[in-house]
Measured scan of single mutants.
Amino acid sequence: RDEDEKEKIKEALKRGNEDKAKEIAKRANVSPEEYERLRKEAE
């Protein structure tokens, strides 16, 4: 379940949809550090 959320965040970031990614991260309680890591992976 947690991994699904992280995949959704990465997908949103790949599409350049940072607002959606942040919204998912907030809902999934993803830490800022984890969010940054996902953002780097998505580049």
Rank of each mutant, 00 (worst) to 15 (best):
E3N: 13
E3R: 13
E3S: 12
E3Q: 14
E3D: 13
E5W: 15
E5T: 15
K6A: 09
K6Q: 08
K6R: 14
E7S: 12
E7T: 13
K8S: 12
K8E: 11
K8D: 08
K8Y: 06
I9W: 01
I9F: 02
I9L: 08
K10D: 03
K10T: 05
K10F: 05
K10M: 05
E11V: 04
E11F: 00
A12C: 05
A12W: 05
L13N: 03
L13H: 04
L13G: 02
L13A: 03
L13P: 03
K14E: 07
K14G: 08
K14Q: 09
R15C: 08
G16S: 04
G16L: 04
G16I: 01
G16D: 05
N17I: 05
N17T: 06
D19L: 11
D19P: 09
D19G: 10
K20T: 10
K20G: 09
A21Q: 01
A21V: 02
A21Y: 01
A21M: 01
A21H: 01
A21F: 01
K22P: 02
K22S: 07
K22D: 06
E23V: 07
E23W: 00
I24R: 03
I24F: 00
I24L: 07
A25H: 02
A25G: 04
A25R: 03
A25T: 03
K26L: 09
A28M: 07
A28E: 06
N29S: 09
N29G: 15
V30N: 01
V30S: 02
V30Q: 02
P32Q: 11
P32M: 11
P32K: 11
P32C: 07
E33Y: 01
E33V: 04
E33N: 06
E34L: 00
E34Q: 03
Y35T: 03
Y35A: 03
E36S: 00
E36M: 02
E36T: 00
E36W: 00
E36R: 00
E36C: 05
E36K: 00
R37P: 00
R37F: 07
R37L: 07
R37Y: 07
R37E: 13
R37W: 07
R37M: 08
L38C: 04
L38P: 00
R39A: 13
R39Q: 10
R39N: 06
R39C: 07
E41D: 08
E41H: 04
E41Y: 03
E41T: 06
A42L: 09
A42T: 07
E43D: 09
E43L: 13
E43T: 09
E43K: 09
